[in-house]
């Protein structure tokens, strides 16, 4: 693991842990509060106190027994994974070429991708919906995977391109001399080298699918693969009044799997190696 292992001074430790504590508090205070709210009975929702007077599982029961929320968590999982895999297949080759190969029109093409990043997504839902119904992607999981790529591909290409470009030069050429085709050089050498950033990006892509509401809502009905974010909205936020306890339960249920997945996925990071430099 490429990490600075210098003997740390006490000051550094204090500053480090202090900084960590600040950031953790910024994250954990709101999250902790809503986590505890998920166990409050309805009457206590707006009582400002951390621990419920009476612990209640009503909202949990409702979310799981009636709303079958765990089913939608599963849908979200599939939506996120599919989005990540598809993004990988499309963006990694593209970014590799932009990062390490020379060809005519490269800069122009790259700027076209930049522009795609700026597009106001909310205006895309109409053409998308019409097209998706027409080509039979409406209400299907692949349809969602494909739609999410609008968010994922431009940014994935960006970040991957920067990463590929900064990898040491000549590696593919070396691989090609030693028996690889251009494709195999990419596959055997460049891809493993980009593993940390690819893992990160797949994770971010996963989160796009996991969190998206815009397309997940527009491109599915109850007959199709609805994701957890849509159900949260429909069950707890979409009425004029918010079902706070149900919202908190669903938020917890939807928030924890990605965090666990990330912690597990970090096994990839731990295998990181010094990529740049010799």
């Amino acid at each position: 693991m490429a990490m600075y292992t210098q003997r740390s001074t006490l000051t550094q430790k204090v500053l480090g842990y202090g900084g960590l504590a600040v950031v953790l508090l910024i994250v954990l205070i709101p999250y902790g509060y809503i986590a505890l709210t998920a166990f409050k009975p309805a009457e206590e929702i707006f009582d400002v106190r951390w621990l419920p007077r009476a612990w209640s599982l009503d909202a949990w029961r409702y979310a799981i027994e009636f709303e079958q929320f765990h089913v939608y968590i599963y849908n979200s999982m599939i939506a996120g994974l599919g989005a990540a895999v598809l993004a990988l297949c499309v963006a990694v080759p593209g970014a590799y070429v932009f990062g390490r190969k020379q060809f005519r029109g490269k800069d122009v093409m790259f700027y076209i991708i930049v522009m795609a990043l700026l597009f106001p997504f909310v205006l895309l839902v109409v053409p998308f919906t019409i097209l998706w119904v027409k080509i039979g992607l409406y209400d299907t999981m692949p349809g969602l995977w494909l739609a999410y790529q609008v968010f994922i591909i431009p940014f994935a290409i960006w970040i991957l391109r920067a990463y590929f470009a900064e990898l040491p030069p000549f590696l593919e050429e070396c691989a090609m001399v030693y028996g690889c085709t251009a494709f195999k050089a990419f596959w055997r050498v460049m891809l493993p080298l980009a593993k940390p950033i690819i893992t990160s990006l797949m994770f971010l892509a996963f989160l796009v699918g996991w969190n998206d509401f815009l397309f997940s809502n527009m491109l599915t009905t109850g007959e199709g693969p609805r994701t957890a974010s849509v159900i949260i909205y429909v069950s707890a936020v979409g009425g004029e009044r918010v079902e706070w306890d149900v919202l908190m339960v669903m938020t917890l249920m939807a928030g924890i799997p990605p965090v666990l997945l990330y912690i597990v996925a970090q096994g990839q990071f731990l295998k990181t190696f010094a990529v740049r430099g010799h």
């Binding site: 109409v126 919906t129 809502n217 527009m218 009905t221 909205y233 429909v234 979409g238 004029e240």
Partner: peptide, 15 residues
Amino acid sequence: WDTYGSIIGPKYRTN
């Protein structure tokens, strides 16, 4: 199951 936002916003019309 749908929401007010869907009929006020783009969902119903677009669909």
